[in-house]
Design a protein around this nucleic acid. Structure first.
Lengths: 110, 110
DNA sequence: TATTATGCCTACCGATTCTAGGTATCGATA
DNA sequence: TATCGATACCTAGAATCGGTAGGCATAATA
């Protein structure tokens, strides 16, 4: 990965995917682009990370998938947040906030 | 781990250890306590995570270790940040900040 | 005396991201 | 027309790393 791009920490990818999908249905490749774009090019999710993650997330029932053709005429697999997925997103965001807060506390110690 | 305590994300432990040691020399068990205390009990590092991490970190030259006896008369292995370790702490903090920022950007999208 | 806290360690498990490959279609360009 | 990059999907395997669960020993405390 390019030097200026941060590697994800394990556990953050699910949240990012769910967040990306919370903005609307999207196919896999598009999720990568949306995350990259929203993060100002700071986050680059690899395909080899994304597709297995999508599979896991679908198994857990957080997203549902269907094949469809989009405007360009190409087929793609579109993913949509389920209600459970939306709840999960909230849970993961809360948990992320707690972690960021806790680490901030440690870091502000002198 | 207790429900109210967050699991660490992979990649954050090194930074926490280095930060704890940046406040002064400390032995392993004390590092756990210091991190727990500084985080207001939010972060609980398991011994089975800490000792292997300390080993890795020492191998990388970020800390140096020596056995010593402390006030209570008990022996313990004291760890100290090296100059390299201090640099590494800065690097990891910067990288953490970038990640937090990037994720915040994604999350604030509507 | 028995239990808890302190202090060190290891082996193995589980989860997850990345690297590195593979396949196929489409549009642009040489 | 041939080629190349972008789009779009996938898998296998490596590597990392934190947690669980155990072990051992000593000091403090109930």
């Amino acid at each position: 990965m390019a030097k200026d791009k941060a590697d994800l920490l394990q556990g953050t990818l699910d949240m990012l995917i769910l967040k990306a999908l919370s903005l609307g249905e999207l196919h896999g490749y598009g999720i990568i682009q949306r995350i990259r774009q929203l993060s100002d090019e700071m986050l680059n999710v690899e395909q080899g990370s994304l597709y297995p993650a999508l599979y896991r997330i679908e198994q857990k029932g957080w997203v549902s998938a269907r094949w469809d053709v989009h405007d360009t005429g190409r087929e793609a697999k579109f993913y949509k947040l389920t209600r459970t997925g939306r709840k999960q997103l909230e849970t993961q965001e809360a948990s992320w906030d707690r972690l960021v807060l806790a680490i901030a506390k440690v870091r502000q110690a002198t």
